[in-house]
């Protein structure tokens, strides 16, 4: 057993974990932050995407202990003061989801895309950058629209 400490959504947390505990297990089972999903076992679906030290990672493909001392942001950390994050609001406004299972990963990847490409990111770039996020409902059109709209709304932040 190991003790792991990190900052999750602005709060210091720690826990006793087995060495093999994945970061997504630590978030879901220890911290009860079940917004981050697990959709596959091959690291391809992207439902578990979160931000560690400012960049997107697949939390099913990282050990919890590897995040020791890191700043972690999950989907639960985006909204503040009772208001959705602009990217969440854009998904709602543009019907960027149907069943919603992939949505936490899509939103976290969307924010990461804007962080790296700016508020005027074009459609082709969004589609290429979404390679690691799979959606089985929407056909992606409204997700891409939502991310571009969210990008504009994030511009002022």
């Amino acid at each position: 057993m190991l003790t792991v400490s990190m900052n999750v959504n602005g709060q210091s947390v720690s826990g006793e974990i087995e060495e093999r505990t994945l970061l997504v297990q630590f978030l879901r089972e220890h911290l009860k932050l079940t917004g981050t999903h697990v959709g596959c076992d091959t690291s391809q679906c992207g439902a578990c995407v979160i931000h560690v030290d400012g960049v997107s990672i697949k939390s099913c493909t990282m050990l919890a202990i590897q995040a020791e001392g890191s700043e972690v942001v999950t989907i639960e950390g985006l909204a503040g003061n009772g208001q959705l994050h602009p990217m969440q609001q854009a998904f709602k406004d543009n019907h960027g989801l149907q069943c919603g299972f992939c949505t936490p990963g899509m939103v976290m990847s969307g924010v990461d895309i804007v962080n790296r490409n700016g508020s005027e990111v074009d459609e082709a770039t969004v589609r290429k950058e979404l390679e690691g996020n799979i959606c089985r409902c929407t056909g992606y059109h409204n997700i891409v629209k939502a991310i571009q709209a969210g990008a504009k709304d994030m511009g002022g932040q």
Binding site: G46, S56, T61, E131
Partner: peptide, 9 residues
Amino acid sequence: IGDPAVRNR
């Protein structure tokens, strides 16, 4: 290689 999240690790 892979996708953005994979490339970050």
